[in-house]
Design a protein around this nucleic acid. Sequence first.
DNA 1: ATAGGGCTTCCCATCGTTGGAAGGTCAAGG
DNA 2: CCTTGACCTTCCAACGATGGGAAGCCCTAT
Lengths: 147, 147
Amino acid sequence: MNIGEASRASGVSAKMIRYYEQTGLIPKADRTGSGYRDYAPSDVHMLRFIRRARDLGFAVREIDGLLNLWRDRSRQSSDVKRIAQAHIAQLRERIATLQQMASTLEVLIDCCAGDQRPDCPILAELEEPADRPSPSLPIAPQLRRRP
Amino acid sequence: MNIGEASRASGVSAKMIRYYEQTGLIPKADRTGSGYRDYAPSDVHMLRFIRRARDLGFAVREIDGLLNLWRDRSRQSSDVKRIAQAHIAQLRERIATLQQMASTLEVLIDCCAGDQRPDCPILAELEEPADRPSPSLPIAPQLRRRP
DNA sequence: ATAGGGCTTCCCATCGTTGGAAGGTCAAGG
DNA sequence: CCTTGACCTTCCAACGATGGGAAGCCCTAT
């Protein structure tokens, strides 16, 4: 099976399959006489595994750990669970960050007339935050988009 | 005021100030005789504006639009609101994506014993998704991590 | 005068993914 | 046998926002 078929069968683009091979996430594929990569059904299986892990938001680095456990018949499920728990903690953190942003912004949007006049609480807030009970240190570095 | 002072006063790193200048988000800074960038308080004001917009998750491209409106005394608040609404829609979409991931993963984690045995529903799910009522087209390309 | 810190530009790395160019290969149809 | 088009190969570049670092100039205080 060449890379195009493997791509269609797994849902992973040919580009990414080559990239995963290059970075060592997956082993080097066998080659046909003419240099084409040649995949077995088990390879497609592995690619689908990767695809699903990506769909759950796992970073490639984490997937590397998952793949090693997947292949290890004597793994302990606690190891898998640990990776998953670390990942879900990250997800929750990112969700909280985004929700904080969204709720702040929503308040501002609700306050904005959205008409032809120039007065705009959104710009006003960006210019000078209203909420400063004590103008000391900046309190929300973790509010950055992707920390 | 040199770039270091402007950085400390605005909360934007010197690196990023140069980057914003290079990409055209902010105008080229004045230079002292020796080539140092020289900032006025109004520049710091603008940098703080940018910083806060970043804290709300606006992309630099969106901030460019906001800055133009900010400087435009005859702006219409509806234009600002439109940008903000488009942005919050993006935020909500990303939140929904992450929440979908998190809830799927949470179910799996709850099902995983997390002990020394190898059996693991998390790996099982990645290997072959249980939930396939109709194995037709893949339905969640928007589930990718950052679409 | 010298030391130290700050400034300049330039290049590189991140992370996952896509795009394209240049060139080799395969299979079907004339 | 040859052409055509679809496929494959490798290599290089870009995205967005940020940080790291090197080489070299500048400023200020001692």
